[in-house]
């Protein structure tokens, strides 16, 4: 039993890791088919992972409602909107005489599910991200004061890019457009490249540790 609980998962990780690391170097139709198949499999398994996440969300808010914690009504709103969207998205539409099954439009006509997307999700998502502009600006005011040379450089770069991204900025400071292009395509690209190389080296090291069973945190703790 200990083998099934501890050694078997490590063995599966090792076998899968080695097989798919080698797959890249085998230019054969069978190898390509293996990659296509496993990619599809991972998408299917990912769907089950979503079930785990949603169940966890349900559990959390059900607890809040059961215990009548402060703000439990909002959990009810969350439940209602989630279940409502699912029912509308998967349910039967009498006006279209067919099952909606995630279709936002049918023959060019917007479904109720499409209505939820257009008039609820898009405004909510857009505004939620838009208000971050105010908080970023407020945080910037507090932290960007040019206390050191490095902070001054950061501030100047940020101002140039902000000016260069809008027509008014280019009108006021004509060089800001070109300067922004240069900062983004050359200076920013070089830093991103260096960071990407560093992250990649770390990811490879982590993958090797996982394949050889040195890193086991993904298996979780517990008595089993």
């Amino acid at each position: 039993m200990n083998f099934l609980r501890r050694q078997l998962p490590l063995l599966i990780t090792f076998a899968m890791g080695v097989v798919f690391a080698c797959q890249y170097y085998v230019p054969h139709p069978v190898s390509e088919l293996l990659l296509t198949t496993v990619t599809k499999w991972l998408q299917i398994i990912g769907g089950f992972a979503l079930v785990l996440g949603i169940t966890s969300l349900f559990h959390l808010h059900a607890g809040k409602i059961r215990r009548k914690e402060p703000g439990w009504g909002y959990s009810g709103v969350l439940y209602a909107s989630m279940v409502g969207t699912i029912l509308v998205g998967l349910g039967y539409s009498f006006s279209f005489q067919q099952w909606i099954l995630g279709k936002e439009t049918i023959d060019g006509v917007r479904t109720m599910f499409g209505w939820i997307y257009t008039f609820m999700m898009v405004p909510l998502q857009g505004t939620m991200f838009a208000i971050l502009a105010f908080f970023i600006a407020s945080a910037a005011y507090r932290s960007f004061r040019a206390r050191s040379r490095e902070a001054a450089v950061l501030l100047v770069a940020a101002v140039i890019v902000m000016l260069g991204r809008v027509p008014l900025g280019e009108y006021l400071v004509p060089i800001s457009g070109d300067a922004t292009q240069w900062i983004m395509n050359v200076l920013n690209a070089s830093v991103r490249r260096a960071i990407l190389i560093g992250i990649s080296l770390g990811a490879i090291a982590l993958s090797i540790k996982i394949i050889f069973g040195i890193e086991r945190a993904y298996l979780g703790g517990g008595r089993e």
């Binding site: 998408q43 299917i44 990912g46 769907g47 979503l50 949603i54 969300l57 703000g71 909002y74 959990s75 709103v77 969350l78 439940y79 209602a80 909107s81 989630m82 279940v83 409502g84 969207t85 699912i86 998205g89 998967l90 099954l101 995630g102 599910f113 939820i116 997307y117 609820m120 999700m121 909510l124 998502q125 939620m128």
Partner: peptide
Amino acid sequence: KLAEHLYVGVSVGYTVVKTYDTVLV
């Protein structure tokens, strides 16, 4: 808070429907 919880609920519901269509169907 009302709008925030609506956003989470609708987003999760939308993801479930899309996943059902993509994965299950």
